[in-house]
Structure formats: C-alpha cells, structure tokens
C-alpha cells in the first residue's frame, strides 16, 4: 500500500467579503492523482503559486481537500477524528527556522511533539536522543535554540518531527533561508533519514541541485501535476522546464548548451562528475 495516495484531489481557497459571503474562489490544486511509495524520496518542483505548498499541507491535514480524497497510510485525512493520527504519521518542516522553534532548550523543543502525543516521559527522552542523533545535533541538546545557525535550527526542527516517529516527512523549502553550509547540513540530514530510517521524504524546493538525488520528481503548474519521472527524465527537458519558470542544475545546463553547439554529449547529464566524464570520453 502506498504511504500517500491522492485521488482527484482539489483545493479551493475561499475569500469572504465583510458580509461573510463568498467573494472569490481560487482553485489552487486541481484534480491531482498521486501515489507515493513507502520509503521513497520525492521532490516537488513548481514556480511560486503553482500549488506545491497547498498540496503539501494536505498531506498532514493542515488543509483538508475541498474535492477528492487524500489518504495517509490508508487514513482519509478528511475524517476529523483521525486528525492527530495523520499528523503523527506525516510531519512537516517549513521554510523559516525561527518560526518553528518553541522551546528554550534544544531537547525541550524536540520533546514538544512526542509530549503532545501523550508518550511516557522515559520514552520521550529516548526519542529525543535518537531524533537529535539522527540529524547530528545531539551535542547541542542543552543549548538555547536562538544561539544556533539557521542550518542547525532547521535540523532541530526536523528532529522535532522525527521524535514523533512519522512514516513521512514533508519539507516545504527547508533550505531557502540558509547559507551553503546550512543547506548542505539539512540536505544530508534528510538524505540520511531516508536512507537509514527509511522515512518517506517529500521535499519541495526551488534549488534544482537538491533534486538530483530524489527517486521521483513531480513538477506542478497551475495546481496540476504536469510532469513526473526520475530526475534524469525531468531534467533532460530543459526547454520545457524553463517554460514553467524552472531551471536545471548547472552541470545539466552546461551540458545542454554544449550540445546545442554540436558536442556529442548524452542528454541526461545530471552532475558535474557525469559531465566531466562525458567530456573526457569525447575522443
């Protein structure tokens, strides 16, 4: 059974006027069918306003579909009594690290989630320790979060989700506000969780280089899924991606440009290593 499944999923934002009458309906997600395998690493791309975040927020029931159905581990997110179960199974990490930290000490912050689930105190501390270890932040457990760097804060935020033992983590542009080091740290932590703990990862990002390692890429436009496939399949469509306000990793772009000028390079180059290798092989 897929961990996440959506059928004919749609979501409308409704704007009300002063008299509480519907003034405007904006259809942010429309007719999305989606199936995510347990343990996979999925990336979602799409320009600002394409519906990525609206789709993501429906995975942990922050938004309830206005059309169609979303199932998380078989649970229909529209069933109100299942809300907490859904949120335990699918955790979410947002863009701004400062908006997600509530504790005054790192391990208290991470403990907040499991505490809300009603876990035994002993067990909470075990979970906190494991979670911090899994993102490489155990050494900071006694620190004050506001003294951490952006990348460290984001890793604490991820640990807070991990401590709830979720099946799936949804990250909505977790690296947008970070410096190169912070980006690397967070991405490594996420990859490790996926690889070692088999947590399903759904990563929303505007950085194409972060997508190269995903199992599957979904591209959205105007609330619908318009492309999906492996990173190789997606990034070989340079022109199409540009049309949808996206880009490709620099190595792919350079390979594409060289091909345009007659270099006999393969169409599916993704990384620097592959490009160097292919160029050296050109007799």
């Amino acid at each position: 059974m897929p961990i996440i499944r959506a059928e004919h999923l749609g979501f409308d934002y409704v704007k009300f006027n002063d008299d509480n009458e519907t003034e405007e309906r904006v259809n942010a997600v429309k007719n999305v069918d989606l199936s995510v395998e347990r343990g996979s690493f999925i990336a979602i791309l799409g320009h600002n306003g394409s519906g990525k975040s609206t789709l993501a927020k429906q995975i942990n029931a922050l938004l309830i579909p206005t059309e169609g159905t979303m199932w998380v581990d078989g649970i229909n997110t529209s069933e109100e009594q299942e809300l907490w179960k859904v949120r335990q199974k699918a955790g979410m990490v947002f863009q701004n690290p400062d908006n997600q930290i509530i504790g005054t000490v790192v391990d208290e912050d991470v403990a907040f989630g499991p505490e809300n689930l009603g876990i035994e105190t002993e067990d909470i501390w075990l979970r906190v320790e494991d979670a911090l270890k899994s993102v490489g932040m155990l050494g900071f457990r006694d620190r004050s979060p506001n003294r951490l760097s952006g990348g460290q804060k984001q890793r604490v935020a991820i640990a807070g989700v991990v401590a709830m033992h979720p099946d799936c983590i949804v990250l909505d542009e977790p690296t947008a506000m970070l410096d190169p080091n912070g980006r690397r740290e967070v991405l490594e932590a996420v990859k490790e969780l996926n690889r070692r703990e088999h947590v399903t990862v759904i990563l929303i990002t505007h950085y194409m280089e972060e997508v190269v390692f995903a199992d599957h890429v979904i591209v959205m436009d105007k609330g619908s899924i318009i492309l999906q496939g492996t990173p190789r399949e997606i990034f070989s469509q340079v022109e199409t991606l540009k049309k949808y306000r996206l880009s490709v990793p620099q190595a792919t772009e350079l390979a594409y440009e060289l091909r345009q000028s007659g270099c006999g390079l393969p169409e599916d180059i993704l990384t620097s290593e592959e490009l160097v290798e292919a160029l050296c092989r050109l007799n």
Partner: peptide, 12 residues
C-alpha cells in the same frame, strides 16, 4: 539582503 530567497528560478 538576499533578495531572491524563496523565489522560483525564473523569479530569481
């Protein structure tokens, strides 16, 4: 200060 943070590639 970081005027392109959070924008899509074309927006950047």
């Amino acid at each position: 200060d970081e005027p392109t943070a959070g924008l899509d590639p074309a927006g950047r």
